[in-house]
Amino acid sequence: MNQAMNALSVLGEPNRLAIVELLRDGELTVGEIAQRLEIRQPQASKHLKILTENEILEVKADANRRIYKLRPEPFQSLESWLKTFQKIMEERYDKLDDYLQVLQQKDKTKKSKK
């Protein structure tokens, strides 16, 4: 729960969200990330540091390269948070769906009487 909120707040920054979206397709180095987002490497490093500190990314060393990848946990908690909100809305919309059918049924009955 707190993890979901934390992830939301960290991903509120557009560059960080863009980094996460890039990494959905696979692991990348800081250089590759900077290049694809067309930002400077120090700027990319700054965002990667925040994302790593908040446990959204993990980093592994490969020779002298540092490779970044997504961790599943923050996305799982975001997902579960969304699902509960979704459940409440879904229940409301199911009722609305039924109610709209009832209203339209009445409408038809009225018209056919004319």
């Binding site: 939301l8 707040s9 509120g12 969200l17 979704q86 809305m89 769906d97 709209l100 339209q104």
Partner: peptide, 19 residues
């Protein structure tokens, strides 16, 4: 129904109704 979060603070929910 579909839902997603945009910019960390906007929740978007979509649903189509037969009406």
């Amino acid at each position: 129904m579909t839902s997603k979060v945009e910019n960390g603070r906007v929740l978007i929910i979509e649903r189509t109704f037969d009406a």
